[in-house]
């Protein structure tokens, strides 16, 4: 791996000035759109994503109606201007459908679907800007939007990616790092129970390195969890205060 040196300076800093185990800046907000039942916006570095949740509601197709649980439907698309080079892509792009499927499977384990038989929960993901880690940003955005919509979940699902440069595991890869033959592992965990709900790796990773990389990704997920929990608690407190004020009137 000749490009390894460039990705990690001798001082242990990455291209964007982060340390190996450092996350990018995270900003998030819930309840940004009005039509939807729940919505969230998240920024992880320069990767920006909006998630909207509709439901539980009547399924759009009969074959999505299960008698014992709700079905989850995910649509993923990226804005034409989200990449540095303009690219118009169809919603039926195979890569998009694949990502949508990963997100869907992630939330089928986390959402308590058995509460809403014969209904459907829609999650729409819209990427506004891409700088690596689109998958884990999408999962995080979807978690926040589902919470905003008030859909019962076992717990948060937090996702993060980690990779490996030379022998050093690095956390939360950006676009440049992802595209430099860095083995990348995307992990989604439910932080309280520690259960893994998604594990995706699309490149070769040595077995000896798997554990440190995996552990780093999980630690990233736990850091994100505390950020998300703060945001949710804050927005819920605000909402509760507003309701109280209304009642006083």
């Amino acid at each position: 791996m000749s490009s390894g040196l460039d990705l990690l300076s001798p001082e242990g800093l990455r291209i964007d000035g982060r340390r190996a185990n450092e996350l990018r800046r995270v900003n998030c907000k819930t309840g940004i759109l009005v039509q939807a039942d729940g919505s969230a916006y998240i920024e992880q570095g320069n990767t920006k994503c909006i998630a909207t949740v509709y439901g539980p509601r009547e399924p759009s197709h009969k074959n999505l109606q299960y008698h014992d649980r709700a079905s989850i439907n995910v649509e993923y698309s990226i804005a034409t201007f989200s990449t540095s080079e303009r690219k118009q892509r169809s919603k039926m792009d195979r890569r998009f459908i694949e990502i949508a499927n990963i997100v869907k499977q992630t939330f089928e384990t986390a959402v308590i679907t058995s509460l809403y038989p014969r209904s459907q929960i829609d999650i729409y993901l819209q990427i506004l800007q891409i700088d690596g880690g689109a998958l884990h940003t999408s999962i995080n955005a979807a978690t926040l939007a589902l919470i905003d919509a008030g859909i019962p979940m076992k717990e948060y699902v937090c996702a993060c990616s980690a990779g490996c440069v030379e022998d050093t595991p690095i956390l939360d890869l950006n676009y440049f790092e992802e595209n430099n033959f860095t083995p990348t592992l995307t992990v989604a965990v439910m932080p309280n129970s520690g259960k893994i709900s998604t594990l995706v790796s699309e490149s070769r990773l040595h077995l000896d390195k798997f554990e440190p990389v995996f552990n780093l990704a999980v630690s990233g997920c736990k850091q994100l969890h505390s950020v998300f929990d703060d945001v949710i608690r804050k927005s819920t407190t605000e909402l509760a205060n507003r309701v109280m004020e209304k009642q006083k009137e």
Partner: peptide, 16 residues
């Protein structure tokens, strides 16, 4: 110019 209505605005904009 190209316009894309995201399904976040309405369920009718889902898929095609």
């Amino acid at each position: 110019c190209s316009v894309e209505c995201s399904p976040s605005a309405s369920r009718d904009f889902e898929g095609k």
